[in-house]
Simulated assay, not measured.
Amino acid sequence: MTDSDIMRHRLRNQLLGGSSHTSAATVVQWMGCVQADDYAAAKRSIAARLLAPRYNDTDRLINEGLLRRSFLLKPLPALATAADSARIQPFTLSGVQQAGRRLHRMLGIDAVLLKQSRRRLEAALRDGQQLTRVQLAPILGLGPQDLRMPFLLMDAELEGVIRNGPLAGNTFTYQLQPHAPTNYDAAEALWLLTDRYFRSRGPARLQDFVAWSGLSAPQGKKGIAMARLAYQVVEGEAYWYAADMEVTAPVIRRMKELPKDGEFRMAYDS
């Protein structure tokens, strides 16, 4: 396997060298998650991986609750299927919260402000209310452009108070998060995350997976062992991929244009 082969495999596995998918749901499930800090860019990224742009049903799936925007891997929003989010987020939760706390200190967010914000959000979203970030800002005593605003909302989501609701136009709303069982299968979550990554983004290195997922290197190694991946050594480095991947490098006749911060750039450690 050469560097050129690796690039062509990645283009195919990321659905950029051709795709038969006709729904955003199956694209997002294949990818595991799609970065969604910029929702418009996330929709373009999904559209690039569909058989035809007219099949882009991302808005509808979000409004129906089948796709969910949440902080799945890092303190950055990502789109995932509701089913995958429920299985993976309890496993990655502590790592995302720890990364968020480091940012809290930089912004002067303390425990008192976090507790107060959660309480105000819970009161404002009672009885099925669905409000946008702009509508929630004055309730928290902040301006809509206050840098603390997204971090207070992220904290409330990770603490199980709120979650993203349906879209209001092109803007996400927030609603109360239903109480859900806290039991989860950590081994299943690690296997799922590993399998999703290397199946959709392989061949890739351990450090690529760690950089993308936010997991530690020991966790990444454990996931690779659980997923029973195949690998080849290229220039002294192991490149892992799904064991059933066709190893003959595909012919890529044309490529899709992606947003500059799309999955292809963010999936690998530079």
Results as ranks from 00 to 15, higher is better:
Gly214Met: 02
Leu229Tyr: 04
Val234Arg: 03
Met226Cys: 04
Arg163Glu: 06
Leu167Glu: 02
Ala204Phe: 10
Ala187Ser: 13
Val210Thr: 15
Ala230Pro: 08
Val234Gly: 04
Glu157Tyr: 02
Gln175Val: 12
Leu190Asn: 00
Gly160Asp: 00
Lys256Thr: 15
Ala168Met: 02
Thr173Asn: 01
Gly223Ser: 10
Ala230Ser: 12
Pro166Thr: 03
Tyr184Met: 02
Val233Tyr: 06
Arg201Val: 04
Gly202Asn: 11
Arg201Ile: 07
Ser213Met: 13
Asp195Tyr: 05
Glu257Phe: 12
Glu257Lys: 14
Leu193Ala: 05
Arg254Phe: 11
Glu235His: 14
Arg253Cys: 10
Leu176Gln: 01
Phe198Lys: 04
Arg199Tyr: 10
Ile252Glu: 00
Arg199His: 13
Ala227Pro: 03
Tyr197Trp: 11
Leu229Arg: 01
Asn183Cys: 11
Glu235Ser: 14
Arg253Trp: 03
Pro259Ala: 02
Lys221Asp: 08
Val161Pro: 10
Gln232His: 13
Gln232Gly: 12
Val247Phe: 04
Arg196Gly: 03
Ser216Met: 10
Arg201Cys: 14
Gln207Leu: 14
Tyr231Gly: 09
Asp261His: 10
Ala186Val: 03
Gly169Pro: 00
Ala217Glu: 14
Glu235Thr: 13
Asp261Asn: 14
Tyr174Met: 03
Leu158Cys: 05
Arg254Glu: 09
Gly165Gln: 01
Glu159Val: 01
Glu237Cys: 06
Ala211Pro: 12
Leu158Met: 11
Gly169Met: 00
Trp191Val: 00
Thr194Ser: 07
Arg196Leu: 08
Gly160Tyr: 00
Pro178Asn: 06
Gln175Pro: 04
Gly169Asp: 00
Asp244Ile: 02
Leu192Ala: 07
Arg228Asn: 11
Gly165Tyr: 01
Glu246Asn: 14
Phe264Tyr: 15
Leu215Lys: 03
Ile252Phe: 01
Tyr241Gly: 03
Leu190Arg: 05
Leu190Glu: 04
Phe172Asn: 03
Gln177Pro: 03
Gln232Leu: 04
Pro181Glu: 05
Val234Pro: 05
Thr248Val: 15
Ala230Gln: 08
Ala249Gly: 09
Ala180Lys: 09
Ala238Leu: 14
Ala238His: 11
Glu257Gln: 15
Leu206Met: 06
Asp261Trp: 07
Arg199Trp: 12
Ala186Cys: 02
Arg196Ala: 09
Pro166Trp: 10
Phe209Thr: 09
Arg254His: 11
Glu188Met: 03
Ser213Asp: 15
Asn183Arg: 15
Met255Asn: 06
Asp208Cys: 09
Gly220Tyr: 09
Ala225Lys: 13
Phe172Ile: 08
Ala168Gly: 00
